[in-house]
Computed example of a mutant assay.
Amino acid sequence: MARPRTFDEKQVLTAVRDQFWDAGYAATSLEDLMRVSGLGKGSLYAAFGDKRQLFLRALRSYTEDSHEALRKALSEPPRALDALRLLLDAPIDDPTGTRRGCLMANSTCELGNADPEVLAHAHRTYETSTALIGDCVARAQREGDLPSGADPIALARALLAAQQGLVFMSRTGLDTATLAATAQSLAAQLLPDRTDAR
């Protein structure tokens, strides 16, 4: 009879996810995964499968957490327009975390051409993010803070592209002040002042 697991699966996935996030897929070795997880090869593979399967599990865990955080961030401010502006500020407010970039974007750049499953997951991830942001845009329109005639999904895609661009720029070592000024410029163009929208 198989022995019960004596480790926290979520904790192991988080440690493994951080390793892939820091080093990338190709540069992460089995020894790295054993070291960060605290598990032997047999236990690691018995619980999660081979390196690729473990990576895909970690990537799904990352996107689930990211979407939950996005839902929370978009729903907390009293007005939707403020939530959308905060979306562009996020890469600047947490520069230490974003210097690693977005794990989904990093993984798509590294593996998207070679691994159709990663590419398909990336597509689903960004479509879900777009839909969540689009709902917030529609709420801002109902609140009278954005023009009612604009396509919420089109604006959501533009906002997501802008936010991901800021995350990427942060990885180049761009200073915080320049990132903040860029975010403000993007917000001014994509999310006009309430008085201008009315």
Rank of each mutant, 00 (worst) to 15 (best):
S107Y: 00
R5I: 07
R124A: 12
A105I: 10
D196P: 06
T128R: 06
R52V: 05
G97A: 14
A15R: 14
M34C: 15
R5V: 13
D50I: 07
E31I: 14
R171M: 15
L84S: 03
T128I: 14
L103M: 09
L166E: 00
P91V: 01
C136S: 09
R79Y: 13
D151G: 08
P4V: 06
P152M: 01
D93S: 09
K51C: 07
Q141Y: 02
T6S: 15
F55K: 02
A23E: 10
A188R: 15
D32I: 12
T96K: 12
I92F: 05
T125H: 05
M169P: 05
F168Y: 10
M169Q: 09
G173H: 08
L191R: 02
A150Q: 04
L132Y: 11
R52Q: 07
T125F: 05
T98P: 00
L70F: 02
R35S: 02
R52D: 04
G97Y: 03
A181E: 06
L159S: 06
S170L: 13
G24L: 03
L174A: 06
T178L: 02
G49C: 04
P91H: 01
S107W: 00
A154K: 15
A188P: 03
S75D: 08
L54C: 05
A180K: 08
R99M: 03
E64Y: 11
L33H: 04
G40L: 09
A188L: 12
E9K: 03
